[in-house]
């Protein structure tokens, strides 16, 4: 088994290595956006439900409620920044 892997690595050309590195970067970018997206979602869940309640009580709260709901968006923005840096820098 181990010998096969070594053999496989041996026959990889430079292009293949570059491509696999690119693939790793793409995976990293995907994980960065995906996990931070989940994080933002979890954080917005509680705020969002409370905000809907507040708006149902008083419609004037809508602006502030919407604003509070997007505050955790920062987390996924950081993920997006990391992904962009991985892919393009």
């Amino acid at each position: 088994m181990a010998a096969e892997v070594v053999a496989a690595v041996d026959v990889m050309t430079v292009e293949q290595i570059a491509a696999s590195q690119m693939g790793m970067k793409a995976l990293g970018a995907g994980i960065a956006v995906g996990l931070t997206g989940i994080g933002s979602g979890v954080a917005e869940m509680g705020i969002g439900s409370a905000a809907v309640g507040a708006v149902a009580e008083n419609k004037d709260m809508f602006g502030l409620a919407l604003l509070f709901t997007v505050i955790p968006e920062t987390i996924v923005i950081f993920g997006l920044v990391v992904a962009l840096l991985l892919l393009f820098v």
């Binding site: 968006e73 920062t74 923005i77 950081f78 997006l80 920044v81 962009l84």
Partner: peptide
């Protein structure tokens, strides 16, 4: 640090 970096959203949201 986080408030300064938060302005990166001007580019990140736009690029998405």
């Amino acid at each position: 640090v986080s408030h300064v970096l938060s302005y990166a959203r001007l580019v990140a949201v736009g690029l998405s």
